[in-house]
Nucleic acid binder design. Structure first.
Lengths: 247, 247
DNA sequence: CGACCTTTTGAACGTATTCAACCGATGTGG
DNA sequence: CCACATCGGTTGAATACGTTCAAAAGGTCG
């Protein structure tokens, strides 16, 4: 143990927080940055926040001043309508960015709630804009991230607007599966962090319908499911369900 | 008539295309720019494209290299699923930006089709990124525009995920009305540029349902509608329909 | 262990869809 | 210029899908 390490406790914390040593850097904001550029990004990301299950990172109406990168855990974002119905607009896992809805009005327009004990990196937005003016690769990648959020939303619109219940749930499971693979987890076996009600809200279905479709998929040998534990048995057939009428 | 004007026919064309003289500049990309900054934006926007009714500005799969600002006319964007169903993901009118879905993959992910003879300003995206690195006000506003597109999409998700047919159409009409007002048109009387089928696709309903709800609203004295001509009689009551269960 | 939350499953119901016929508007070619 | 074909819109009746209401079982957490 060297004296220098003991004398600089902050550098340990620094290392712990740094993008350059983060396992998620291939999926997150630093994608495409050189080592030097990543160091500059590190300079603005040195605050992390934790949220226990059920707590929120931000709520609709709060002033916006930062984006949040999911470091660990799982989040949902949702909006509440006047009469109390709420709509889950997305689920977010490691490496994904929360809060881009707030840029336009400088107020958050939805709630970001942890579905399990989680941690996020705080990215002060003003400083991110400053840096992305100096680092084209960062600017470019940030634009791509926002654009992909739009494309993702279009996918959900397609799902909600023109798919039947079974297609919706199949699309949801396939999407989750792909995101887990990208993070080094099994594509075919995972724990759902969200309730049937939250899945239903996201998919425009009631929780009973979600439960029924899960049971149906299980009866048909597509998946095996008990509570939050899902194992996908036949991914190709599940994929085929998406975008194909029952015939 | 001075000699200089006759000698520089291009400057006339230039003037015609310039953001600084465009009636839509308060709604479009130049929002918040100083005169000088706007001139620099003008430097990159000097190509316009026209699309006759039914023609597209871009199609899914084509390489992305520009955004398009609607100068006149009306567009829809839509995605086609594997089995041929298509989903309208948005309608775009004067001052609104098309094509942001293409940034993420450098390919367009949907079709942008003119619903009437229309004109767009071509905004080369690489040059827009260059300029927005030099002009913070432009950078900031562009980020806001993208963010608002995300928020708009969330609104549609809410609509598709948790509203009944009547709420959806009411929300759609109120939204159109507001966008017409912002452009100096009547909030209560307008022509729909899209068919019942396109409205239905956007709202996740069949065209027959859209037609029925139009008729119901008319019977209830909320609106008067014949074909594409709509007059909103009771905007407050229409607004109240949105976000409130039938009770 | 007990209270509460989540999930499952059944039966009745309701909303939007499907299928079908008809009408009106628009546009094209003889 | 009109006849006819086509497209878009309206309306009705039967159907289907997902919802609602209800009950009970299975988990979870203090």
């Amino acid at each position: 143990m060297t004296g220098s390490m003991a004398a600089q406790p902050l550098s340990l914390e620094r290392l712990r927080t740094a993008c350059s040593t983060c396992g998620l850097k291939e999926l997150c904001l630093p994608v495409g940055l050189s080592g030097q550029e990543m160091d500059r990004l590190d300079d603005l990301i040195h605050v992390r926040r934790t949220a226990k299950k059920g707590q929120s990172i931000y709520r609709a109406g709060e002033p916006f001043d930062a984006l949040y990168a999911v470091r660990s855990g799982f989040f949902k974002s949702s909006i509440l309508s006047e009469d109390g119905r709420d709509q889950v607009t997305g689920f977010y896992m490691g490496g994904e960015l929360l809060g881009m809805d707030g840029i336009g009005t400088e107020q958050h327009t939805c709630d970001a709630v942890a579905l399990e004990d989680s941690e996020v990196c705080v990215i002060p937005f003003g400083r991110l804009e400053d840096l992305s003016r100096q680092v084209p690769a960062l600017q470019s990648h940030f634009h791509k991230v926002m654009s992909r959020e739009i494309v993702r939303d279009h996918g959900v619109m397609m799902l909600l607007g023109s798919m039947r219940a079974e297609e919706r749930l199949a699309a949801f499971l396939v999407n989750l599966s792909q995101r887990f693979v990208a993070r080094g987890y099994s594509p075919s076996e995972f724990y759902l962090r969200m309730t049937r009600e939250e899945i239903g809200s996201y998919l425009g279905l009631k929780l009973e319908t979600v439960s029924r479709v899960f049971s149906k998929f299980q009866d048909e040998g597509l998946i095996s499911v008990q509570q939050k534990h899902v194992r996908i048995i036949d991914i190709p057939r599940l994929k085929h369900l998406v975008g194909h009428r029952p015939c």
